[in-house]
Design a protein around this nucleic acid. Sequence first.
DNA 1: CGGCTAAACGGACTATACCCCGGTTAGTAT
DNA 2: ATACTAACCGGGGTATAGTCCGTTTAGCCG
Lengths: 204, 204
Amino acid sequence: MDQPVVPLAAPRGERADAARNRLHLLATAREMLAEQGADTLTMDGLAERAGLGKGTVFRRFGTRAGIFQALLDDDERAFQEQVLSGPPPLGPGAPPLDRLISYGRARIGFLIEHREIARAALDGSQLVPAGSQTPISQLHIRMLLGQLGLDAPDLDVLAVQLTAALDGPLLLYLSATDLTEAAARIAERIAQSWQDLVCRVCRR
Amino acid sequence: MDQPVVPLAAPRGERADAARNRLHLLATAREMLAEQGADTLTMDGLAERAGLGKGTVFRRFGTRAGIFQALLDDDERAFQEQVLSGPPPLGPGAPPLDRLISYGRARIGFLIEHREIARAALDGSQLVPAGSQTPISQLHIRMLLGQLGLDAPDLDVLAVQLTAALDGPLLLYLSATDLTEAAARIAERIAQSWQDLVCRVCRR
DNA sequence: CGGCTAAACGGACTATACCCCGGTTAGTAT
DNA sequence: ATACTAACCGGGGTATAGTCCGTTTAGCCG
Protein backbone atom coordinates (compact mmCIF):
# COMPACT_ATOMS: atom_id res chain seq x y z
CA MET A 1 0.00 0.00 0.00
CA ASP A 2 3.04 2.18 -0.31
CA GLN A 3 5.71 0.72 -2.56
CA PRO A 4 4.95 2.04 -6.05
CA VAL A 5 5.80 -0.46 -8.74
CA VAL A 6 9.19 -2.03 -8.16
CA PRO A 7 8.86 -5.79 -8.41
CA LEU A 8 12.46 -6.16 -9.58
CA ALA A 9 15.28 -8.24 -8.21
CA ALA A 10 16.77 -5.59 -5.95
CA PRO A 11 14.57 -5.90 -2.84
CA ARG A 12 14.62 -2.22 -2.07
CA GLY A 13 17.09 0.53 -2.51
CA GLU A 14 20.31 -1.03 -3.68
CA ARG A 15 21.98 2.02 -5.01
CA ALA A 16 23.03 2.02 -8.64
CA ASP A 17 26.73 2.22 -7.86
CA ALA A 18 26.42 -0.60 -5.39
CA ALA A 19 24.75 -2.81 -7.96
CA ARG A 20 27.36 -1.92 -10.52
CA ASN A 21 30.13 -2.80 -8.13
CA ARG A 22 28.49 -6.07 -7.22
CA LEU A 23 28.30 -7.09 -10.85
CA HIS A 24 31.84 -5.99 -11.43
CA LEU A 25 33.09 -7.94 -8.44
CA LEU A 26 31.25 -11.05 -9.56
CA ALA A 27 32.73 -10.75 -13.03
CA THR A 28 36.21 -10.19 -11.65
CA ALA A 29 35.81 -13.16 -9.33
CA ARG A 30 34.90 -15.33 -12.28
CA GLU A 31 37.98 -14.23 -14.15
CA MET A 32 40.24 -15.00 -11.21
CA LEU A 33 38.46 -18.27 -10.68
CA ALA A 34 39.07 -19.27 -14.26
CA GLU A 35 42.74 -18.48 -14.24
CA GLN A 36 43.87 -19.38 -10.76
CA GLY A 37 41.26 -21.61 -9.14
CA ALA A 38 39.11 -20.99 -6.11
CA ASP A 39 41.37 -21.43 -3.13
CA THR A 40 43.95 -18.87 -4.13
CA LEU A 41 41.28 -16.24 -4.50
CA THR A 42 41.60 -13.87 -1.58
CA MET A 43 39.42 -10.97 -0.59
CA ASP A 44 42.32 -8.55 -0.84
CA GLY A 45 43.28 -9.88 -4.23
CA LEU A 46 39.74 -9.62 -5.54
CA ALA A 47 39.36 -6.09 -4.23
CA GLU A 48 42.62 -4.95 -5.71
CA ARG A 49 42.03 -6.51 -9.09
CA ALA A 50 38.55 -5.05 -9.22
CA GLY A 51 39.99 -1.67 -8.32
CA LEU A 52 37.80 -1.40 -5.24
CA GLY A 53 38.34 -1.28 -1.52
CA LYS A 54 38.39 -4.35 0.61
CA GLY A 55 35.57 -3.00 2.70
CA THR A 56 33.37 -2.89 -0.36
CA VAL A 57 33.87 -6.55 -1.05
CA PHE A 58 32.86 -7.48 2.45
CA ARG A 59 29.93 -5.13 2.41
CA ARG A 60 28.62 -6.85 -0.72
CA PHE A 61 29.18 -10.47 0.17
CA GLY A 62 29.57 -10.54 3.90
CA THR A 63 31.98 -13.40 3.91
CA ARG A 64 34.38 -15.18 1.65
CA ALA A 65 31.99 -18.04 1.09
CA GLY A 66 29.37 -15.45 0.26
CA ILE A 67 31.12 -14.64 -2.97
CA PHE A 68 30.95 -18.19 -4.16
CA GLN A 69 27.38 -18.49 -3.02
CA ALA A 70 26.55 -15.44 -5.08
CA LEU A 71 28.29 -16.94 -8.10
CA LEU A 72 26.43 -20.20 -7.60
CA ASP A 73 23.14 -18.37 -7.25
CA ASP A 74 23.87 -16.73 -10.51
CA ASP A 75 24.59 -19.99 -12.28
CA GLU A 76 21.61 -21.58 -10.65
CA ARG A 77 19.16 -19.17 -12.15
CA ALA A 78 19.09 -20.93 -15.50
CA PHE A 79 18.72 -24.25 -13.74
CA GLN A 80 15.77 -23.05 -11.71
CA GLU A 81 14.21 -21.74 -14.85
CA GLN A 82 14.21 -25.25 -16.28
CA VAL A 83 12.74 -26.69 -13.13
CA LEU A 84 10.01 -24.13 -12.74
CA SER A 85 8.91 -23.69 -16.30
CA GLY A 86 10.98 -25.88 -18.60
CA PRO A 87 9.78 -28.94 -20.48
CA PRO A 88 8.73 -32.07 -18.56
CA PRO A 89 9.68 -34.27 -16.90
CA LEU A 90 11.96 -31.76 -15.19
CA GLY A 91 9.52 -28.93 -15.59
CA PRO A 92 5.81 -29.00 -14.79
CA GLY A 93 3.49 -31.33 -16.61
CA ALA A 94 4.91 -34.73 -15.72
CA PRO A 95 3.78 -36.90 -12.79
CA PRO A 96 5.39 -35.86 -9.51
CA LEU A 97 7.48 -38.99 -9.15
CA ASP A 98 8.96 -38.55 -12.59
CA ARG A 99 9.75 -34.98 -11.78
CA LEU A 100 11.40 -36.00 -8.55
CA ILE A 101 13.65 -38.47 -10.32
CA SER A 102 14.37 -36.00 -13.04
CA TYR A 103 15.17 -33.27 -10.57
CA GLY A 104 17.72 -35.41 -8.79
CA ARG A 105 19.47 -36.20 -12.02
CA ALA A 106 19.49 -32.58 -13.06
CA ARG A 107 20.81 -31.37 -9.74
CA ILE A 108 23.56 -33.94 -9.67
CA GLY A 109 24.64 -32.81 -13.09
CA PHE A 110 24.47 -29.18 -12.13
CA LEU A 111 26.50 -29.55 -8.98
CA ILE A 112 29.15 -31.68 -10.60
CA GLU A 113 29.43 -29.19 -13.38
CA HIS A 114 29.87 -26.36 -10.93
CA ARG A 115 31.80 -28.39 -8.44
CA GLU A 116 34.58 -25.91 -7.84
CA ILE A 117 32.28 -23.07 -6.97
CA ALA A 118 29.94 -25.32 -5.04
CA ARG A 119 32.83 -26.58 -2.98
CA ALA A 120 34.07 -23.10 -2.23
CA ALA A 121 30.59 -21.94 -1.33
CA LEU A 122 30.58 -24.29 1.63
CA ASP A 123 31.29 -22.74 4.94
CA GLY A 124 31.83 -24.26 8.33
CA SER A 125 29.77 -21.65 10.06
CA GLN A 126 26.62 -22.18 8.03
CA LEU A 127 26.22 -25.88 8.09
CA VAL A 128 23.92 -26.17 5.16
CA PRO A 129 25.79 -26.60 1.90
CA ALA A 130 25.16 -23.20 0.42
CA GLY A 131 23.04 -20.15 0.89
CA SER A 132 20.65 -20.75 -1.93
CA GLN A 133 21.18 -24.33 -2.67
CA THR A 134 19.32 -26.02 0.09
CA PRO A 135 16.18 -23.91 0.14
CA ILE A 136 15.50 -24.41 -3.55
CA SER A 137 16.02 -28.13 -3.57
CA GLN A 138 14.12 -28.56 -0.39
CA LEU A 139 11.19 -26.45 -1.43
CA HIS A 140 10.89 -28.15 -4.75
CA ILE A 141 11.11 -31.61 -3.28
CA ARG A 142 8.63 -30.63 -0.62
CA MET A 143 6.19 -29.46 -3.25
CA LEU A 144 6.47 -32.65 -5.27
CA LEU A 145 6.01 -34.75 -2.16
CA GLY A 146 2.84 -32.84 -1.45
CA GLN A 147 1.53 -33.58 -4.91
CA LEU A 148 2.29 -37.26 -4.48
CA GLY A 149 -0.22 -37.55 -1.68
CA LEU A 150 1.96 -39.71 0.50
CA ASP A 151 0.68 -40.80 3.87
CA ALA A 152 3.92 -39.95 5.60
CA PRO A 153 3.64 -38.41 9.07
CA ASP A 154 5.82 -35.38 8.36
CA LEU A 155 6.38 -34.30 4.81
CA ASP A 156 8.53 -31.35 5.86
CA VAL A 157 11.11 -33.50 7.55
CA LEU A 158 10.89 -36.04 4.75
CA ALA A 159 11.77 -33.29 2.32
CA VAL A 160 14.80 -32.40 4.39
CA GLN A 161 15.80 -36.04 4.51
CA LEU A 162 15.53 -36.50 0.78
CA THR A 163 17.37 -33.29 0.10
CA ALA A 164 20.17 -34.50 2.31
CA ALA A 165 20.10 -37.91 0.68
CA LEU A 166 20.54 -36.22 -2.67
CA ASP A 167 23.33 -33.92 -1.56
CA GLY A 168 25.16 -36.32 0.73
CA PRO A 169 26.72 -38.59 -1.86
CA LEU A 170 27.61 -35.55 -3.92
CA LEU A 171 29.39 -33.83 -1.10
CA LEU A 172 31.29 -36.94 -0.28
CA TYR A 173 32.20 -37.28 -3.89
CA LEU A 174 33.13 -33.65 -4.38
CA SER A 175 35.37 -33.67 -1.35
CA ALA A 176 37.03 -37.00 -1.89
CA THR A 177 37.78 -37.33 -5.56
CA ASP A 178 39.48 -34.69 -7.58
CA LEU A 179 36.92 -35.34 -10.25
CA THR A 180 39.41 -35.72 -13.02
CA GLU A 181 38.34 -39.24 -13.83
CA ALA A 182 35.07 -40.88 -14.53
CA ALA A 183 32.88 -38.02 -13.37
CA ALA A 184 30.17 -39.26 -15.65
CA ARG A 185 30.23 -42.78 -14.27
CA ILE A 186 29.93 -41.69 -10.67
CA ALA A 187 27.26 -39.20 -11.53
CA GLU A 188 25.27 -41.96 -13.16
CA ARG A 189 25.72 -44.18 -10.17
CA ILE A 190 24.41 -41.52 -7.83
CA ALA A 191 21.55 -40.70 -10.16
CA GLN A 192 20.59 -44.35 -10.33
CA SER A 193 20.61 -44.65 -6.57
CA TRP A 194 18.55 -41.51 -6.25
CA GLN A 195 15.94 -42.97 -8.55
CA ASP A 196 15.89 -46.17 -6.59
CA LEU A 197 15.56 -44.32 -3.31
CA VAL A 198 12.66 -42.13 -4.28
CA CYS A 199 10.86 -45.06 -5.87
CA ARG A 200 11.18 -46.98 -2.63
CA VAL A 201 10.01 -44.07 -0.57
CA CYS A 202 7.06 -43.19 -2.74
CA ARG A 203 5.60 -46.54 -3.70
CA ARG A 204 2.52 -47.39 -1.81
CA MET B 1 56.19 -60.40 8.70
CA ASP B 2 58.15 -57.72 10.47
CA GLN B 3 56.24 -55.88 13.18
CA PRO B 4 56.85 -57.77 16.41
CA VAL B 5 53.78 -57.89 18.61
CA VAL B 6 52.28 -54.44 19.06
CA PRO B 7 48.53 -54.65 18.54
CA LEU B 8 47.84 -51.75 20.88
CA ALA B 9 45.84 -48.62 20.31
CA ALA B 10 48.73 -46.35 19.40
CA PRO B 11 49.43 -47.40 15.80
CA ARG B 12 53.13 -47.24 16.29
CA GLY B 13 55.36 -44.96 18.23
CA GLU B 14 53.33 -42.12 19.68
CA ARG B 15 55.83 -41.00 22.21
CA ALA B 16 54.80 -40.93 25.83
CA ASP B 17 55.16 -37.17 26.14
CA ALA B 18 53.11 -36.70 23.01
CA ALA B 19 50.30 -38.84 24.38
CA ARG B 20 50.44 -37.06 27.70
CA ASN B 21 50.21 -33.68 26.02
CA ARG B 22 47.34 -34.80 23.84
CA LEU B 23 45.37 -35.87 26.86
CA HIS B 24 46.24 -32.69 28.69
CA LEU B 25 45.17 -30.56 25.75
CA LEU B 26 41.89 -32.42 25.44
CA ALA B 27 41.20 -31.93 29.13
CA THR B 28 42.09 -28.26 28.97
CA ALA B 29 39.89 -27.83 25.94
CA ARG B 30 36.98 -29.34 27.81
CA GLU B 31 37.50 -26.96 30.68
CA MET B 32 37.56 -23.96 28.42
CA LEU B 33 34.57 -25.29 26.54
CA ALA B 34 32.62 -25.60 29.75
CA GLU B 35 33.35 -22.12 30.98
CA GLN B 36 33.43 -20.02 27.85
CA GLY B 37 31.77 -21.95 25.02
CA ALA B 38 33.20 -23.24 21.79
CA ASP B 39 33.57 -20.23 19.58
CA THR B 40 35.77 -18.20 21.89
CA LEU B 41 38.21 -21.05 22.18
CA THR B 42 41.30 -20.12 20.20
CA MET B 43 44.38 -22.15 19.46
CA ASP B 44 46.61 -19.60 21.15
CA GLY B 45 44.39 -19.52 24.19
CA LEU B 46 44.33 -23.28 24.47
CA ALA B 47 48.08 -23.53 24.09
CA GLU B 48 48.74 -20.87 26.67
CA ARG B 49 46.31 -22.25 29.20
CA ALA B 50 47.72 -25.73 28.74
CA GLY B 51 51.20 -24.33 29.22
CA LEU B 52 52.31 -25.61 25.82
CA GLY B 53 53.46 -24.09 22.57
CA LYS B 54 51.09 -23.35 19.77
CA GLY B 55 53.05 -25.58 17.45
CA THR B 56 52.29 -28.50 19.71
CA VAL B 57 48.58 -27.92 19.52
CA PHE B 58 48.66 -27.90 15.76
CA ARG B 59 50.92 -30.91 15.61
CA ARG B 60 48.39 -32.85 17.69
CA PHE B 61 45.17 -31.78 16.06
CA GLY B 62 46.13 -30.37 12.72
CA THR B 63 43.33 -27.86 12.62
CA ARG B 64 40.96 -26.07 14.92
CA ALA B 65 38.10 -28.33 13.98
CA GLY B 66 40.40 -31.26 14.69
CA ILE B 67 40.27 -30.49 18.38
CA PHE B 68 36.52 -30.74 18.48
CA GLN B 69 36.57 -33.85 16.36
CA ALA B 70 38.94 -35.41 18.84
CA LEU B 71 36.63 -34.47 21.69
CA LEU B 72 33.67 -35.89 19.84
CA ASP B 73 35.55 -39.08 19.09
CA ASP B 74 36.21 -39.38 22.73
CA ASP B 75 32.58 -38.93 23.69
CA GLU B 76 31.53 -41.24 20.93
CA ARG B 77 33.45 -44.18 22.25
CA ALA B 78 30.80 -45.08 24.81
CA PHE B 79 28.11 -44.69 22.19
CA GLN B 80 29.88 -47.05 19.80
CA GLU B 81 30.25 -49.51 22.59
CA GLN B 82 26.49 -49.65 22.94
CA VAL B 83 26.01 -50.08 19.22
CA LEU B 84 28.59 -52.78 18.79
CA SER B 85 27.99 -54.85 21.85
CA GLY B 86 25.23 -53.34 23.96
CA PRO B 87 21.76 -54.80 24.47
CA PRO B 88 19.33 -55.04 21.55
CA PRO B 89 17.67 -53.51 19.71
CA LEU B 90 20.54 -51.03 19.49
CA GLY B 91 23.18 -53.69 19.92
CA PRO B 92 23.37 -57.02 18.12
CA GLY B 93 20.63 -59.58 18.46
CA ALA B 94 17.63 -57.72 17.12
CA PRO B 95 16.38 -57.84 13.51
CA PRO B 96 18.33 -55.45 11.25
CA LEU B 97 15.41 -53.13 10.64
CA ASP B 98 14.81 -52.70 14.34
CA ARG B 99 18.48 -51.98 14.82
CA LEU B 100 18.41 -49.43 12.05
CA ILE B 101 15.50 -47.59 13.64
CA SER B 102 17.08 -47.82 17.02
CA TYR B 103 20.41 -46.59 15.75
CA GLY B 104 18.85 -43.49 14.25
CA ARG B 105 17.15 -42.66 17.50
CA ALA B 106 20.31 -43.17 19.48
CA ARG B 107 22.40 -41.08 17.14
CA ILE B 108 19.93 -38.24 17.16
CA GLY B 109 20.03 -38.23 20.91
CA PHE B 110 23.79 -38.39 20.99
CA LEU B 111 24.32 -35.54 18.58
CA ILE B 112 21.78 -33.31 20.23
CA GLU B 113 23.36 -33.96 23.56
CA HIS B 114 26.78 -33.06 22.21
CA ARG B 115 25.53 -30.39 19.92
CA GLU B 116 28.04 -27.73 20.79
CA ILE B 117 31.05 -29.90 20.12
CA ALA B 118 29.44 -31.45 17.07
CA ARG B 119 28.77 -28.02 15.66
CA ALA B 120 32.31 -26.87 16.27
CA ALA B 121 33.71 -30.05 14.76
CA LEU B 122 32.29 -29.08 11.40
CA ASP B 123 34.70 -27.58 8.99
CA GLY B 124 34.15 -26.03 5.62
CA SER B 125 37.20 -27.63 4.15
CA GLN B 126 36.23 -31.19 4.96
CA LEU B 127 32.69 -31.32 3.84
CA VAL B 128 31.64 -34.33 5.82
CA PRO B 129 30.29 -33.42 9.24
CA ALA B 130 33.14 -34.72 11.35
CA GLY B 131 36.18 -36.87 11.13
CA SER B 132 34.78 -39.88 12.88
CA GLN B 133 31.12 -39.27 12.67
CA THR B 134 30.36 -40.21 9.11
CA PRO B 135 32.44 -43.35 8.82
CA ILE B 136 30.91 -44.97 11.86
CA SER B 137 27.33 -44.18 10.99
CA GLN B 138 27.84 -45.10 7.41
CA LEU B 139 29.60 -48.36 8.11
CA HIS B 140 27.01 -49.43 10.59
CA ILE B 141 24.13 -48.56 8.34
CA ARG B 142 25.85 -50.28 5.47
CA MET B 143 26.22 -53.42 7.51
CA LEU B 144 22.59 -53.48 8.55
CA LEU B 145 21.48 -52.91 4.99
CA GLY B 146 23.55 -55.88 3.95
CA GLN B 147 21.84 -58.05 6.54
CA LEU B 148 18.45 -56.92 5.34
CA GLY B 149 18.98 -58.54 1.96
CA LEU B 150 17.50 -55.68 0.00
CA ASP B 151 17.46 -55.89 -3.76
CA ALA B 152 18.75 -52.37 -4.19
CA PRO B 153 21.20 -51.77 -7.01
CA ASP B 154 23.90 -50.12 -4.89
CA LEU B 155 23.92 -50.65 -1.17
CA ASP B 156 27.01 -48.53 -0.69
CA VAL B 157 25.42 -45.41 -2.09
CA LEU B 158 22.19 -46.22 -0.31
CA ALA B 159 24.13 -46.25 2.95
CA VAL B 160 25.53 -42.83 2.16
CA GLN B 161 22.07 -41.58 1.33
CA LEU B 162 20.57 -42.84 4.55
CA THR B 163 23.44 -41.50 6.60
CA ALA B 164 22.88 -38.11 5.03
CA ALA B 165 19.14 -38.39 5.56
CA LEU B 166 19.79 -39.02 9.22
CA ASP B 167 22.29 -36.21 9.66
CA GLY B 168 20.62 -33.64 7.41
CA PRO B 169 17.69 -32.70 9.61
CA LEU B 170 19.99 -32.63 12.60
CA LEU B 171 22.45 -30.28 11.00
CA LEU B 172 19.68 -28.01 9.91
CA TYR B 173 18.32 -28.09 13.38
CA LEU B 174 21.63 -27.61 15.11
CA SER B 175 22.45 -24.60 12.99
CA ALA B 176 19.09 -22.91 13.06
CA THR B 177 17.73 -23.18 16.55
CA ASP B 178 19.68 -22.36 19.62
CA LEU B 179 18.32 -25.49 21.13
CA THR B 180 17.18 -23.88 24.32
CA GLU B 181 13.59 -24.84 23.79
CA ALA B 182 11.84 -28.03 22.98
CA ALA B 183 14.91 -30.03 22.09
CA ALA B 184 13.08 -33.17 23.03
CA ARG B 185 10.10 -32.43 20.84
CA ILE B 186 12.16 -31.83 17.74
CA ALA B 187 14.33 -34.83 18.46
CA GLU B 188 11.23 -36.96 18.62
CA ARG B 189 9.95 -35.55 15.39
CA ILE B 190 13.19 -36.35 13.59
CA ALA B 191 13.34 -39.80 15.13
CA GLN B 192 9.79 -40.49 14.00
CA SER B 193 10.59 -39.41 10.49
CA TRP B 194 13.69 -41.53 10.46
CA GLN B 195 11.68 -44.55 11.41
CA ASP B 196 9.16 -43.82 8.71
CA LEU B 197 11.89 -43.36 6.12
CA VAL B 198 13.74 -46.57 6.78
CA CYS B 199 10.49 -48.52 6.90
CA ARG B 200 9.58 -47.17 3.51
CA VAL B 201 12.97 -47.94 2.08
CA CYS B 202 13.21 -51.43 3.47
CA ARG B 203 9.73 -52.81 3.02
CA ARG B 204 9.41 -55.20 0.14
C1' DC C 1 75.63 -45.38 31.77
C1' DG C 2 76.66 -42.44 27.64
C1' DG C 3 75.67 -41.57 22.94
C1' DC C 4 72.41 -41.45 18.85
C1' DT C 5 68.37 -40.38 16.19
C1' DA C 6 63.91 -39.57 15.16
C1' DA C 7 60.16 -37.32 16.97
C1' DA C 8 58.28 -33.58 19.62
C1' DC C 9 58.45 -28.92 21.23
C1' DG C 10 58.04 -23.83 21.12
C1' DG C 11 57.14 -19.50 19.70
C1' DA C 12 58.21 -16.15 16.27
C1' DC C 13 56.32 -15.43 11.54
C1' DT C 14 52.98 -15.20 7.75
C1' DA C 15 48.69 -14.91 5.48
C1' DT C 16 44.18 -13.50 5.37
C1' DA C 17 39.33 -13.17 6.82
C1' DC C 18 36.75 -9.74 8.84
C1' DC C 19 35.96 -4.98 11.41
C1' DC C 20 35.68 0.08 11.71
C1' DC C 21 34.87 4.68 10.86
C1' DG C 22 35.93 9.07 8.59
C1' DG C 23 35.11 10.76 4.06
C1' DT C 24 32.34 10.65 -0.25
C1' DT C 25 28.33 10.24 -3.24
C1' DA C 26 23.80 8.77 -5.16
C1' DG C 27 19.04 9.69 -4.81
C1' DT C 28 15.40 12.72 -3.39
C1' DA C 29 12.64 16.44 -1.62
C1' DT C 30 12.01 21.36 -1.94
C1' DA D 1 19.22 23.66 -9.02
C1' DT D 2 20.42 22.96 -4.14
C1' DA D 3 20.56 21.02 0.08
C1' DC D 4 20.01 16.97 2.79
C1' DT D 5 20.60 12.24 4.23
C1' DA D 6 21.25 7.60 4.04
C1' DA D 7 24.01 4.45 1.90
C1' DC D 8 28.34 3.41 0.10
C1' DC D 9 33.39 3.52 -0.39
C1' DG D 10 38.20 2.87 1.09
C1' DG D 11 41.97 0.99 3.15
C1' DG D 12 44.35 0.64 7.45
C1' DG D 13 43.74 -2.22 11.79
C1' DT D 14 42.90 -6.53 14.44
C1' DA D 15 42.52 -11.30 15.58
C1' DT D 16 43.63 -15.78 14.69
C1' DA D 17 44.51 -20.05 11.94
C1' DG D 18 48.23 -22.32 10.28
C1' DT D 19 53.61 -22.73 9.00
C1' DC D 20 58.65 -23.15 9.80
C1' DC D 21 62.75 -24.37 11.66
C1' DG D 22 66.15 -24.33 15.27
C1' DT D 23 66.21 -26.57 19.85
C1' DT D 24 65.07 -30.16 23.17
C1' DT D 25 63.97 -34.78 24.64
C1' DA D 26 62.18 -39.61 24.75
C1' DG D 27 63.35 -44.22 23.59
C1' DC D 28 66.90 -47.29 22.39
C1' DC D 29 71.40 -49.55 21.58
C1' DG D 30 76.01 -50.70 22.60
